[in-house]
Amino acid sequence: MPIQIAVADDHSAIRLGMKYVIHEWMPEAVVHFVENMPGLLRLLSAETIDMIVLDINIPGGNNFHMIQMIKDVRENVKILVLSAYEEDVYALRYIDAGADGYLQKDCDDGAIRDALNAIHTGKKYVSNEVKEHLLHDRLNSGAASHDNPIRLLTNRELEVCRLLIDGKGVGEIAKALFIHTSTVGTYKSKIFEKLRVTNVKALTDVFTIHHVDGR
């Protein structure tokens, strides 16, 4: 029975490009396309999907909890995150959340095929760059966190950062993350304290300096 793969991305060019790479990797694969998180969950309920290539910034997603939402519908599905978010900051967080691999969208076709093959055979996948960062952290007792203070943020704080940088207000963030407005305020204060900023513009500048996509 051919492997069934869902490509979850709201950009048509990415979907078509992924279809090409997937069929080059495994010609008999059946490829499904979805453009948002509700559509992905419906597909998972209707079809026996073996693997998902997931843009974590699809409409209805954009948070770490989306991995668990997927697993709640189809527990054994494999998930390869393909995202614009900086892998140095986000890759291991999403793997800890339950994803099987992480790649940045600017990677080449060979890296995507390597990731698909690794995940298909039951392995986890991160790039060589992430592995080097892990080794650097181990040898330097976590010193890389001081080089990039964004790595000090918790997963939830990162989610709040994305929405703040995207121009969302406290009420909008509370609604998007299903938390109370006072909780958003607490997270915002902790973020500003950790990154030593006093406003959203300065917060955006920190993300830009460290080449991290906060949106």
Rank of each mutant, 00 (worst) to 15 (best):
E87K: 15
I22K: 04
T204V: 00
V21K: 08
M66V: 13
H32W: 12
D106C: 01
I112A: 02
E75Q: 14
R162L: 01
P38S: 06
L43A: 13
V212N: 08
H32F: 14
E157K: 06
N76A: 10
R15S: 01
L163A: 06
M1L: 07
P149H: 05
L152W: 13
G122I: 07
V212Y: 06
L139H: 11
G60P: 10
V53A: 04
R151V: 00
G101P: 03
H210R: 03
D106L: 08
K124F: 10
D72H: 06
C161Y: 09
E86R: 14
D88W: 04
K105C: 05
W25C: 02
A115V: 05
T154E: 11
I49S: 02
E193P: 01
L177W: 09
E86L: 02
E157A: 10
T198V: 08
K190N: 13
L139R: 15
I3Y: 03
V7N: 06
D205V: 04
V77E: 12
M66H: 05
I22A: 04
G167Q: 03
V77D: 10
H133D: 01
P27L: 05
P38Y: 03
Y102E: 08
V89S: 07
A118T: 12
L135P: 01
R162G: 15
V126Q: 08
C161H: 08
E47M: 03
E157L: 02
L134C: 12
V77Q: 12
I49N: 02
N36H: 12
N128C: 00
